[in-house]
Amino acid sequence: MMLAQIVLFDGFDPLDALAPYEVLSAGGMFTGGAVEVELVSAEGARQVPSGLGSLSLAATARLEPRRADLVLVPGAVGRLPDGEEPTEDSIPAILGRTLGTELPLLLKQSLDRPGLTVATVCGGSMVLAMAGLIEGRPATSHHLGLDLLAASGVRAIDARVVDDGDLVTASSVTSGLDLGLYLLERELGPRVAHAVERLFAHERRGTVWRDTGAETKVGALAR
């Protein structure tokens, strides 16, 4: 069985968390329980306020890298970065506040554990980047946050999903669906992913980026 723990923190984006939650849970349904999905937090069981006003979700357990096979970090809801100093309600500030919790330590333990995959949606990759955990590694985020990602020492890739082995990142909010389907295909095979794709009536978009294959030649297709 694959245990997926989806991490909630104050100000998280609900769709970043719930889209992959539903996709992965459906994968468990189609496989007779091969996937179990939990909503967790660094602090343990608690009501976690999202960035959407009164909407909150219940974390039922603590993030446990020793127990999980997949740890998924969503992004946040707030004001978009505009090149100026971030305000308290801006996405960078909300993500930055996670650095004052146990989350960075638990994410480091997750990345250090062989066989565990860490995945992110949207600004979730910025949490890892701000904590200095993915310097030099390829990753993606929302297109408006790619410059911030690069400024944190990450090799920012403008792709919908980026697979770097034990780190799989997805770009914007709806890409959580694509990420969930890709992870199902990668871990359980295409038949399971296809069944869930048909259930959700959602076809994955774009090519999953990996650091393999022939190098591209800029201008080679110019006419």
Rank of each mutant, 00 (worst) to 15 (best):
G33L: 05
P92F: 03
M126L: 15
L63P: 08
R191W: 02
V71L: 01
V48P: 10
V35K: 07
R160N: 05
D211F: 01
D112F: 02
S25G: 15
L179P: 14
L39I: 05
S50Y: 09
P49S: 02
V73S: 05
I94M: 09
R67C: 08
R223N: 09
L72N: 03
S110H: 09
E85Q: 12
I91S: 07
A4H: 05
A17E: 03
F200T: 15
R210Q: 14
R155V: 13
A195H: 04
E203S: 12
Y182H: 15
Q47F: 08
E22S: 12
E215N: 10
S125D: 07
T87A: 12
P14A: 13
L106S: 06
G165K: 08
P138Y: 05
V192D: 03
R205S: 13
E187W: 06
V121D: 06
T207L: 08
A45W: 03
H142I: 07
R62P: 02
E187Q: 13
Y21K: 03
L167S: 03
A17P: 07
G32C: 10
A68H: 06
T216G: 01
E64Q: 15
V192W: 02
D147F: 01
A151P: 02
E38F: 05
P14R: 00
L116Q: 01
A93M: 05
A214T: 10
Q5F: 00
G115A: 13
H202E: 09
L184D: 05
L15M: 13
A76K: 14
L95H: 04
P20W: 02
L107Y: 01
M130G: 04
V23H: 11
G123V: 06
G153R: 00
I157Y: 00
A34F: 03
V7F: 00
P81M: 11
T117D: 01
L128H: 02
V208R: 06
V161H: 11
E187K: 09
E64A: 14
H142D: 11
L111T: 14
S41P: 13
P81T: 11
G27H: 09
G165V: 15
G32K: 04
F30G: 00
F200V: 14
M29R: 15
R46S: 10
A201S: 13
V7S: 12
L148C: 05
S25L: 12
A76Y: 02
G180T: 12
I94D: 06
E135C: 14
G11I: 11
T140M: 07
V168E: 07
E64C: 11
G11Y: 08
L72M: 09
S90D: 13
E88Q: 09
S110E: 11
V118Y: 00
T169C: 04
I134K: 06
R191T: 12
G115Q: 08
G27C: 14
Q5L: 01
Q5S: 04
P114W: 03
P104T: 12
R79G: 14
E187S: 07
D211S: 08
L167H: 10
G83I: 10
A214D: 13
A19N: 15
